[in-house]
């Protein structure tokens, strides 16, 4: 356990930079393979070959007919209902081919997300990704999902745990379910981890995402640490994850409690531009993002009753929280500017 507390930032970064430079761009039409199904080899080049072979000619010229044929085959499956969803409503095909391709321009060109330490997410089996939460609007979760799907050698699908508010809203709830998100509750999280999925959780919840701009990058309380006992029960490693850049997309300088209560929201953000500029004010600032995954904290060495031990839960929760907080500070010190 002792070595899990040490996060070798520098080594990690150097390794990641060289790897990241040569990382090929993913085709907008990734392989048809079942999401979350790892290739098993863990060899990035192998995974790339597979997706290249299935994805046809790729973005290079001359492949338009095949692209059209693929698009029509996709349209045919969609219109006749011949596709599969899992028990949580996750529609892997729709997520990979449509939902994520809407997010990719934002991910690649707008926030220019830099991913480090992605190899800390295992190639197979369950893992619990614990991340900080910020930005007034949960774009950080969506960007995290793109990062894991596109940059992980096994192309793993991230299953995010979302607040219940998400599932009461029309359209949002439908899209969230289809993108593989589910309610942040022990039952669902444990079920997903036992099935060997990568589950993403942001334990700060509304306290983190709706905190004022002055408190940026200060981690809020991590709930009751339920995520640790869930990971322990499933024996899944905890991967701490720090996201830098999301805090500044909507600098929340005020919170209108009256409006929030009227609309039934946990907070109503007031930023220098929103709601003054209307829809224009809802455009996020183009900050530069860094997503850093830390060393996984193993949870399989504990006895069966450990998940009921409150002391151990608090200690592990603190350890995860400290790791994320330190990484955040580390990344902030090295960051050149908010926007570059």
């Amino acid at each position: 356990m002792a070595d899990a507390k040490v996060i070798p930032f520098d080594d990690d970064r150097r390794r990641r930079r060289t790897a990241g430079a040569s990382e090929p761009q993913h085709d907008a039409w990734p392989g048809q393979g079942e999401a979350g199904e790892a290739t098993g080899t863990g060899d990035p080049s192998g995974a790339e070959d597979a997706s290249e072979a299935e994805g046809g000619t790729g973005p290079a010229g001359g492949g338009w007919e095949e692209r059209v044929a693929q698009g029509l085959a996709f349209l045919r499956r969609r219109l006749t209902g011949e596709y599969e969803v899992d028990e949580f409503g996750y529609d892997a095909e729709l997520t990979d081919q449509v939902l994520l391709s809407f997010l990719r321009p934002m991910y690649e060109n707008y926030f220019r997300v830099e991913v480090r330490g992605i190899e800390h997410i295992p190639d197979t089996g369950g893992a619990l990704l614990v991340s900080n939460h910020s930005g007034t609007v949960p774009l950080d979760g969506l960007m995290l999902q793109v990062a894991v799907r596109d940059h992980h050698p096994a192309g793993r699908a991230l299953r995010l745990l979302a607040a219940d508010l998400v599932f009461t809203l029309p359209v949002v709830s439908e899209l969230a379910r289809k993108a593989g998100h589910t309610l942040a509750c022990t039952e669902d999280a444990q079920r997903l981890l036992e099935r060997g999925e990568v589950v993403g959780v942001m334990p700060e919840g509304f306290k983190g995402i709706g905190k004022p701009f002055a408190e940026r990058y200060k981690l809020q309380r991590f709930g009751r640490g339920g995520f640790v006992s869930t990971a322990l029960r499933a024996g899944a490693p905890i991967v701490p994850c720090s996201i830098v850049g999301a805090e500044e997309i909507y600098p929340m300088v005020g919170n209108s409690r009256t409006l929030a209560r009227l609309l039934g929201l946990p907070y109503f953000p007031i930023t220098p531009t929103f709601p003054w500029l209307g829809a224009l004010g809802a455009v996020p600032l183009p900050t530069k993002w860094i997503i850093q995954f830390g060393e996984p904290i193993p949870t399989d060495g504990y006895p069966a009753a450990a998940a009921e031990d409150p002391m151990l839960m608090f200690n592990l929760t603190d350890q995860v929280r400290e790791t994320i907080q330190h990484t955040l500070y580390e990344l902030l010190v090295r960051r050149r500017s908010v926007f570059f």
Partner: peptide, 21 residues
Amino acid sequence: AAGLAGLSGERHEEKEPGSHG
């Protein structure tokens, strides 16, 4: 699809309507 194959695939925007799942 057959019609498009005849046209040698110039109208690639056909795939867009499927995006609403």
